[in-house]
Design a binder for these strands. Sequence first.
DNA 1: AAAGATGTTTAAAGATTCTTAAAACATCCT
DNA 2: AGGATGTTTTAAGAATCTTTAAACATCTTT
Lengths: 234, 234
Amino acid sequence: MISDHPTTSVLLVEDDRNMCYLLQDNLFSNGYKVETCHDGKEGFRRFRETHFDLCILDIMLPRMDGFQLAAKIRLINETVPIIFLTSRSMEADKLLGFKTGCDDYITKPFSLMELNYRIQAVLKRSPKHADQNGTYNFRLGIFEFDSRSRVLKSTGGPEKKLTPKESKLLKLLCEKKNELVTRSFILNHIWGDDDYFIARSMDVYLTRIRNLLKPDQSLEIINVYGTGYQLLEK
Amino acid sequence: MISDHPTTSVLLVEDDRNMCYLLQDNLFSNGYKVETCHDGKEGFRRFRETHFDLCILDIMLPRMDGFQLAAKIRLINETVPIIFLTSRSMEADKLLGFKTGCDDYITKPFSLMELNYRIQAVLKRSPKHADQNGTYNFRLGIFEFDSRSRVLKSTGGPEKKLTPKESKLLKLLCEKKNELVTRSFILNHIWGDDDYFIARSMDVYLTRIRNLLKPDQSLEIINVYGTGYQLLEK
DNA sequence: AAAGATGTTTAAAGATTCTTAAAACATCCT
DNA sequence: AGGATGTTTTAAGAATCTTTAAACATCTTT
């Protein structure tokens, strides 16, 4: 089968090595780029670190089941299509209540042909936010910011090297420049979790970013009480 | 029996010299390229050093048993087929729980015919990731890097000879250029193990590689705190 | 204005990574 | 075998990054 998708990247989370390997091989030979892992937590960590066009999640997984994983994925990406691998005993109810428009599920045992068909269908429906993670460079007031090398350069000034967390936070704010970003959105995207202490940690980073941006008076990160933040470029 | 496999290379790890020789001879006369060793640790060392298309592992082995060995092999190669040699007393349970889709096992005593049949079956199932180790030359900024001769040539500059470990590390980073590579991935692939001290050792090599790449400002190995590294080419 | 909730800042503790030097180990050569 | 040379690991302290803690400020509601 010849590929018609330049490099669609797939996150495959499957506990059973046997099955995992079979699927990986099938996907690979269909031209997809595949990353596999074998438990939910690792799956989520991967998802946060990289960009994927499709997730295939087993339901029964160690450390965090497929539903929980999908829920966490949905918190940070509303659109990426997810295909669940279920066992026959799974009640369709639970699944139907869960999956969104772009998702699908397939009951084990299934044929590879069937899976491939569903993948194609699900990708066709998916809006392909192509540029989702494609932008790494931002122009921001007097600054230029490269989120990959984590360098914030002020035109005609010195450049500063940011830490990974600083960089992610600034990137997120840049992506949503002049938009309101909720606290929980930031927390789930960058920290992958949202509790009291992590929120305090975020406060610290907000302060740092504000300090970094101080040289340019036209930039401001304003707080919307009880809701979130907004990076304004005046 | 005439071979239909150009040069399928087999790693045979068998404690019992007698048996080992018998098998080696049989494999050899079937056209396989065979390397033998007699304990688990040595087996793993070999596996890391060379490329094999098939592993035949006795379960009872000195220094590290066949299961442990297989587990470590799986960490650095998810797909190579493994055939276990078990004694009759071995509970099939343990084995079935362990082996993945491409693997098989055979209970001693067995006929050579039976073994050969299983080898063919297992190889047929295996997808032969042909290009797995195929790329040795990399273009990297102002450099050209040949990971086999371990030479890093800077265009119009002097060439440097790398040590084996340096070379492996740089090769791995080149293969995953612009991707995030986790610490444990590097450790398991290059050192075959992942503990505190080996991680410190890796730090040392990272420093060296960074120094080697310093002449080209556009190259950078950035650290993602708590996760891994990324070789960026800007 | 008071009280509670939420946000900001600074300091410092804890964790991880980086660097350098020296020790241990390996290989080559005579 | 023994010395020279090259490679890898160990060790230890410095540097960097992240989280925790706590004190203070601001906002909202009553």
